[in-house]
Design a binder for these strands. Structure first.
Lengths: 150, 150
DNA sequence: GCGTATCTTTACGTTTACGTCAACGTAAAG
DNA sequence: CTTTACGTTGACGTAAACGTAAAGATACGC
């Protein structure tokens, strides 16, 4: 190993799977769906840097909740020829559609984080009240009716 | 209907489903999972404002890609008693976990939008070049090798 | 009070995104 | 040359999130 150090680095399926925190089954599943198409050496799969880039894109799309089929159209978009004008305009249209989705998700996440912050503040207030009361009125809140949790 | 106008407004399953853009089957599925628990009048379901609030939360969680089971723990969190100190600390811990998830999603969405913007810029550049070249070197890009798309 | 529309439960089907064997090939180590 | 570790292709399983179809209950509009 490490013969000349001039050749481009490659990875096996187990290596990229490990690195990205997924199973080899997941990687192969993405290949079945046409999301990845690694080089073959005999039957073995050889992953190059561009495959890693694509896998990164795929997993981010997945974290964002996009279905894999939609993700495929996106990563394909990045690799599309874009030579002809019609193709470019098609791509630009697709970009706009994706952007709308993403902006929706961005807004959702921001709102959720905001509400979470508000909620945390209320909880901390409750906790502070509880602490203050504890010195004088021990168990003041024990009488509160409430469902049993978990 | 509309007897006194003094009573709180209520909705049927079809009404809230329509309003939120989901099917009644989806709403009932959420009930099966304990995400909603509308009042019953005989066998009929009656939805109040709090049910609408919860459904809004659920659907936002869904758009964010959270699994319904996780969503359930979140909406339950908002309704939890929070009386005792241990409960409050548990809730605060949960909030932190959710926040980490949400921040990840937020970052993912921001990065994706950024890359999408970069990509769009490149496409527009290509398009401009194509326009400019068209006057002098017609079909300059036609010789580009590239896979056939769709 | 009768038909039509809406709502109900029950139950099985579908899609997506993988997990989980089974059975076999291959390459390097001892 | 055998062991051991990976890698490969099917094929089937499964969990989540609903869809869909059937068959009966209930309310409304006239």
């Amino acid at each position: 190993m490490l013969v000349h150090m001039t050749s481009a680095p490659t990875w096996t399926i187990a290596q990229i799977a490990d690195e990205f925190g997924v199973t080899h089954r997941t990687v192969r599943h993405y290949e079945d769906l046409g999301l990845l198409s690694p080089e073959r050496l005999g039957t073995r799969r050889i992953y190059h840097r561009r495959d890693r880039t694509r896998l990164g894109l795929i997993l981010r799309g997945r974290r964002l909740g996009f279905p894999l089929e939609q993700i495929r159209t996106i990563v394909d978009l990045f690799d599309a020829p874009r030579g002809r004008r019609a193709q470019l305009e098609y791509v630009l249209g697709q970009i706009d559609e994706r952007r709308i989705d993403l902006e929706r998700r961005l807004k959702d996440a921001q709102e959720a984080l905001h509400e979470l912050g508000e909620f945390e503040r209320r909880c901390r207030d409750d906790l502070a009240t509880l602490e203050g009361a504890q010195a004088h009125v021990m168990g003041r809140y024990a009488a509160r009716p409430g469902r049993v949790q978990r």
